[in-house]
């Protein structure tokens, strides 16, 4: 619903709602990648980018949360690029190279899994998201989940199976892409 509101009429108020919904996620992701003080800047840069890129958001290509996590991924990468530039590029000639070399930072790599999981969780939507969280993170049985969501056990199992495979495929893709 927020995705549609954002696509149709992205007012500052809709941005604030998106911030309330996903700001904590972006901050947690950034805190995994850098000190909290820098992470605050990344949150700010992410939502300012979200605002300024609002016309390029297409709800048909995915939910707003996934798009925001993708932008957070780039702002986190920018942070590491900027760090390389300050260490290497007093001579401005080397700036472009330093920006390019920002990719593949080991600390950044450690964050990639978290980003991928959050992006994918935003993509798969409900009820798969709740089901996979309950089953994997909270270690609930399929019977328990079926009962609490008032859903047939077979349906829960098939959602779970698809969500797990989807996560696995996504990880394989990102590996193929970075290799």
């Amino acid at each position: 619903m927020l995705s549609r509101a954002f696509a149709e009429d992205a007012s500052p108020e809709v941005l604030r709602q998106a911030y309330e919904r996903w700001g904590g996620l972006v901050y947690a992701l950034a805190c995994r990648a850098m000190p909290a003080h820098d992470a605050e800047d990344v949150v700010q840069q992410t939502f300012v980018s979200v605002w300024r890129s609002r016309q390029s958001y297409d709800p048909a290509s995915g939910p707003l949360g996934a798009w925001i996590v993708t932008i957070a991924r780039r702002r986190i990468a920018d942070h590491w690029k900027a760090r390389s530039a300050s260490e290497l590029a007093v001579d401005p000639e080397t700036l472009a190279g330093a920006l390019d070399r920002g990719e593949g930072d080991p600390v950044l790599d450690a964050v990639q899994d978290s980003l991928t999981v959050q992006e994918e969780l935003e993509h798969i939507g409900e009820p798969q998201r709740t089901i996979v969280r309950l089953a994997v993170l909270e270690d609930r049985s399929t019977a328990w989940i079926a009962d609490s969501l008032a859903m047939p056990v077979g349906t829960v199992k098939s959602h779970l199976s698809r969500a797990l495979r989807r996560l696995r495929d996504r990880w394989e893709e990102t590996h193929a892409a970075s290799a």
Binding site: P12, R52, V117, V136
Partner: peptide
């Protein structure tokens, strides 16, 4: 191993400090 990796990669949302939204609002 996908499930294990999922557990490791999951992280709970962390509310950003007060003031971050004000800075975003000021910037936009």
């Amino acid at each position: 191993s996908t499930a294990d990796r999922f557990r490791l990669a999951d992280l709970p949302a962390l509310p950003p400090p007060a003031g971050v939204w004000d800075r975003i609002a000021a910037e936009i």
